[in-house]
């Protein structure tokens, strides 16, 4: 999958103003297990909104297999790379979906997989950089036929 770098950079630039402000989650809107999973991942660190391209369909026909791509612009050097990108579901029986772990030899902080969504919901993505920054984006995916999380 190729992301549109130009659109991404433009969007990033537009976001800088708000992105510099630490963003607090609307914890109250999250179920306890989702909030706990996110708290465990974030601890007491500051989270910056944006900086991650999340490629997920607006509407997924089949919740059992929803393609999801993630990308963070990064030089992927020893000194400056993306270490991990984690996916969370807000309305699945369990919030953890999975995690991509990268190294400088990954070359790009970009990966795609297929996930299960029991129903339409918000997906939350957290990325951690080698200097300890945490980025966050989310997207809502409507699901036509729920993916039974067998």
């Amino acid at each position: 999958m190729k992301f549109d770098r130009r659109a991404f950079i433009t969007a990033s630039a537009a976001l800088v103003g708000v992105a510099l402000l630490p963003k607090r989650f609307a914890w109250a809107e999250l179920s306890d297990d989702v909030a706990d999973a996110l708290r465990a991942a974030i601890a007491d660190r500051e989270v910056v909104e944006g900086g991650i391209v999340l490629d997920a369909p607006d509407i997924a026909q089949n919740g059992a297999s929803v393609p999801v791509g993630v990308f963070v612009e990064s030089p992927m050097t020893a000194a400056d790379h993306v270490r991990e990108i984690r996916l969370f579901a807000t309305r699945n029986p369990s919030p953890q979906i999975g995690a991509f772990r990268f190294t400088p030899a990954s070359g790009r902080a970009e990966a795609t997989t297929r996930i299960r969504l029991a129903e339409g919901q918000e997906i939350i993505v957290l990325a951690e950089t080698s200097d300890g920054r945490l980025l966050r984006v989310s997207a809502t995916v409507e699901v036509t036929v729920g993916g039974c999380v067998t």
Partner: peptide
Amino acid sequence: FVYDFDNGTSANPYHVFF
């Protein structure tokens, strides 16, 4: 590169990476 699977991963896991 590592992927840690959790409950939300589809059957027949498919990955694209670099």
